Simulated assay, not measured.
Amino acid sequence: MKRPKKLVLLGATGSIGESTLRVIRKHSDKIELIGVSAHQQSEKLVAIAKEFNVPHACLTHDPIEKITLPKTTQLHTGQNSMEELASLTDADVVVVGIVGAAGLLPTLAALRKGKEVVLANKESLVVAGELVTETARKHGGRIIPADSEHNAVFQCIQGQDQRTLQSIILTASGGSFRDLPLDQLSNVTIEQALQHPNWSMGKKITVDSATMANKGLELIEARWLFDVSPKQLEVVIHPPSLVHAIVRFVDGCCLAQMTPASMTFALQNAILFPERHEGVESSLDFSQPLDLSFSPPSLDRYPCLRLAIEAMEQGDSAPLIFNAANEIAVDAFLRNRIGFLEISRIIEETLNHSNFISTNSVDELLSLDAETRQSAQKRVQQLG
């Protein structure tokens, strides 16, 4: 009998982590959880460690109260703790489900050890796409995308010659305000922004969906994952989120991947690749009418998408600056310090007042990331 894949789950208490745990429960004979990390939710981490008898657990911040892990669980803390878990000798697969640029260093650590990285952290490729992909090639690591859109592309191109790929089309729901009149966007609330019509996700990524900054980040990520030019990438609005991506080939044929709107499908495909097994949830029901409508996005409605495309086309450190400014702006919005429309304003002003550099130095990238956050934070304070 084939031994189970040994898996490390970074970001175990978030939405990606919860979906991954559902896949592991479904396929406990095929997946063994050997490491989990959390940011601050220590109680959830303890519960996961107990349920799965996990030998390694990591908290990136010291717990507020004393925690009691199983005696068989080693607790890792400190600045390098996630990198320690990502580098575990026994690990076959590392799922990176951390939100934000914090996912970069553990992603690189896993790839340097030749691990298979199931990547649900788009910021790693946005911040350092060339460095991440080159590290994978150099050390024999492999990146399998876990975002629903990128995993859909991944499935569609299996067995296809790269030279026959003409374009990649990523679908977007349009977020919480896709049908709201433009003149009402200035008055939307945090609560309204967090009411995604299709997906259950964390707060930051739900706001990113409403601005479509998320789709812009996904375009940048796809550019590196699939080694294509910006001109080969498109976005369409597809409100029901049934089709997750479409790949168009040079002969005009298009392949699309479809599932219901749940992350378990993409995560299971990525973790168990190349095998396929019974899913956690039911597939689409074709005995019922399905909405397969598509439309182009309005860049007037979604200025963050426009800025992301411009950053992708600019290249060098422009995507990093877009991402860092967006993280600061979204955090400020969620803290009720700025309005919804000011998210794009902060990003645009930060980009306009930044110098773009070309570097594959981790230290230089992280330094620029920190400088950009400070610059964006000052703009938040000016608006506040």
Rank of each mutant, 00 (worst) to 15 (best):
L255S: 12
Q268I: 04
S262P: 00
M258S: 13
S262V: 03
N269P: 02
G252K: 04
S262F: 07
M263A: 06
H277W: 09
A270V: 00
L272W: 09
L255R: 15
R276H: 11
R276N: 05
E281S: 05
F286Q: 09
E278K: 15
F273L: 02
T259R: 02
D251E: 14
E275Q: 12
G252Q: 10
Q288N: 10
L284W: 05
C253F: 05
A261M: 02
S283M: 08
T264V: 15
G279N: 15
S287M: 06
S287Y: 05
G252E: 08
S262A: 15
C253V: 13
Q257S: 14
L255C: 02
A261W: 01
L272K: 13
F273N: 07
G252D: 09
E275K: 14
Q288A: 08
T264E: 04
S283H: 07
A266F: 11
F286N: 01
G252C: 06
S282D: 09
A256L: 13
H277M: 07
E278I: 06
H277L: 07
V280R: 01
F265A: 05
G279S: 11
G279K: 12
P260G: 11
I271R: 07
G279C: 15
Q288G: 05
N269I: 03
N269K: 06
S287D: 13
C254P: 04
A270T: 11
E275I: 04
A270F: 02
E278F: 00
